[in-house]
Design a protein around this nucleic acid. Structure first.
Length: 166
DNA sequence: GCCAACGTTGGC
DNA sequence: GCCAACGTTGGC
């Protein structure tokens, strides 16, 4: 794999608002609207080339729908200064923006949704904020074991992902 | 700095 | 639609 090795992430979105198929159609999009400091800090750690799982929350079924890649590192979230947006933040100053976004591109749609139940069945995911009760973090780092076990659970291999889609 | 009230997340 | 769990706000 390339050097430095990419960091791995999981990013949640509600598919009724923006789902993996929307990203696949657009090719590339801003990941904006994150309004939680811990999640924002993870966005700021992302580097071009990092890979992420696109997770559908508040969905039937909830689960991972595809793989994405970071194509632009953190810069000010456009919506915080948009009065028409529900993500408008009056307390965010233009000279010191409070919220960040990255740009991501679609890499690969999972052949089927990897459901939350299926993730819970994977030992690698036992301690993830995703599966732990009561945590609502919308952007989180993944271990290589978590990432690869999720791929494997839908019949994908990291080598194939790298060879065919990156 | 405490903490009650409130708003949001997100599975069910 | 319910509601548990959590983060944020704001009075004190």
């Amino acid at each position: 794999m390339s050097f430095p090795p990419p960091q791995l992430w999981l990013l949640k979105s509600e598919p009724d608002v923006f789902g993996y198929p929307d990203l696949a159609r657009l090719g590339r999009e801003r990941w904006n609207g994150v309004r939680n400091y811990q999640a924002r800090n993870f966005l700021r750690e992302m580097r071009v080339g990092d890979l992420g799982l696109f997770y559908h929350s508040n969905a039937k079924p909830a689960g991972v729908a595809g793989v994405l890649r970071v194509v632009r590192e953190a810069y000010p979230d456009d919506l915080q200064f948009d009065p028409a947006s529900e993500y408008h933040d009056l307390r965010s100053a233009a000279e010191n923006p409070r919220w960040s976004m990255v740009d991501v591109e679609a890499v690969l749609a999972f052949p089927t949704i990897l459901t939350l139940d299926a993730l819970r069945a994977l030992p690698e995911w036992a301690n993830s904020p995703l599966t732990r009760r009561g945590t609502r973090l919308s952007v989180m780092p993944l271990t290589p074991e978590q990432f690869c076990s999720a791929l494997a659970a839908v019949g994908l291999r990291l080598e194939d992902l790298v060879a065919n889609h990156l």
